[in-house]
Nucleic acid binder design. Structure first.
Lengths: 223, 223
DNA sequence: TAACTTTTTCACCAAATTTTCATAATTATA
DNA sequence: TATAATTATGAAAATTTGGTGAAAAAGTTA
């Protein structure tokens, strides 16, 4: 579990961090909205703890921008007394709310509650790697939390790649496994499908690497 | 489902309203206790969201009077810091309790929980989601509270979908599970049944999504 | 039996997907 | 560097797929 804490006060970040680590969560830190967005690009964040009042980019703005590209559950922190109006305006979409000073234990409790609610219970049929999520049961591809329109063939090809990571797969093999043994078509067709699939995968397009004179390969880099 | 929200702050009413509408609940509004009682006389209210601090008639008084003639589940909102004593005194009888500022999502979750607890005592036999209610025992489909004429096949198909949410289901699978393993008919027949079922589901028709080249899928979005 | 409801088949149409193909870009090799 | 081999890409053509209405077929009920 990756928790992203966005707060300009280092003290608060540290407290939250300590409690989160204690729970076994991994913690990422940002001092303002810009840093937060940066991290979202690079890492796979499960939940965000967001302060409202921050220099540079404040919590509201961050939240708006986050929603454009991601859909990550968010708990908002705010000093008591900050205007209700503004808060309620954007509260549609936030998952929970705490006023400072807050009890770290309560924060943890709420994080847990949200993760429980949000997290996919049927983990088995779901594949996640970096910002890629594949729901095999529902046949949906998510990129950074957003469902992507994908054609049946694309989905089948991607599935085959995922099930055979770090393996150079020939076009012939793909035709056999995805199209079926009785299909006889032009091998070049694959190229076009790879093109489309790569486009659907957005910034993760490079995970499908071409292996010259052989075919393609899906890169999976555990760590 | 009719939700009555009683709060003098229009802003809060609006937020609650928005979230409730999103759930498919119908919303009635009152700015104080008097208005609230008025509405109770005229409308059929399923659950009340009640603010404590209000001009004219406050929440306590409203609650007392409501209890005299009705017995409607009630969730109380109160600003943090309002005396617990007083609250405790009357908390006998209320169904749940939230301090402002609260997370709208949490409010919805609690409304759901209470409605579930109160409304269908026969939890197993009744399924509710958004404005859809399915009485499995009685084999009745309700859309926004209204019973809908539905054929046996439609009902069976819908049931199967509900029991397998967010799962792409092939036409073949449907034929097997709904018609029976020994049925041999045209797969396109399914399409026609889906068409009819979607029509029966009115504005929720989009919950049955077609998964191209595979079949169909029932969307269930908890949260 | 007649009247009615439900289920199934089917063919047309529009839309989405897949395939092909020509050309551009890239990479390897002599 | 020039050449050949291979892959990427855009666009058009071909094919597949699903939505739909109508009508036939099967099943129910009065």
């Amino acid at each position: 579990m990756n928790v992203l804490i966005i707060d300009d006060e280092e003290l608060i970040r540290n407290v939250v961090k300590e409690y989160c680590l204690n729970e076994g969560y991994n913690v990422l830190e940002a001092a303002n909205g810009y840093e937060g967005l940066d991290i979202l690009e690079k890492e796979n964040v499960d939940i965000i703890v967001l302060d409202i009042m921050m220099p540079k980019m404040d919590g509201y703005t961050f939240f708006e921008k986050m929603k454009e590209n991601f859909n990550i559950p968010t708990i908002v922190l705010s000093a008591r007394g900050e205007e209700y109006d503004k808060l309620f305006g954007f509260s549609v979409g936030i998952d929970d709310y705490l006023t400072k000073p807050f009890s770290p234990k309560e924060l943890i409790a709420r994080i847990k509650a949200i993760l429980k609610r949000t997290n996919n219970n049927n983990l088995e049929d779901i594949y996640t790697y970096k910002g890629i999520k594949v729901d095999f049961k529902g046949r949906v591809l998510y990129i950074d939390g957003k469902a992507v329109d994908i054609t049946p063939k694309e989905f089948d090809i991607l599935s085959y790649f995922i099930k055979n990571p770090n393996t150079a797969i020939t076009r012939d093999q793909l035709l056999n496994k995805v199209w079926g043994y009785d299909y006889f078509g032009d091998e070049r067709t694959i190229d076009t499908h790879i093109k489309i699939l790569r486009n659907s995968m957005g910034k993760y397009r490079d995970l499908i690497v071409t292996v010259r004179s052989v075919g393609y390969k899906f890169i999976y880099d555990e760590k």
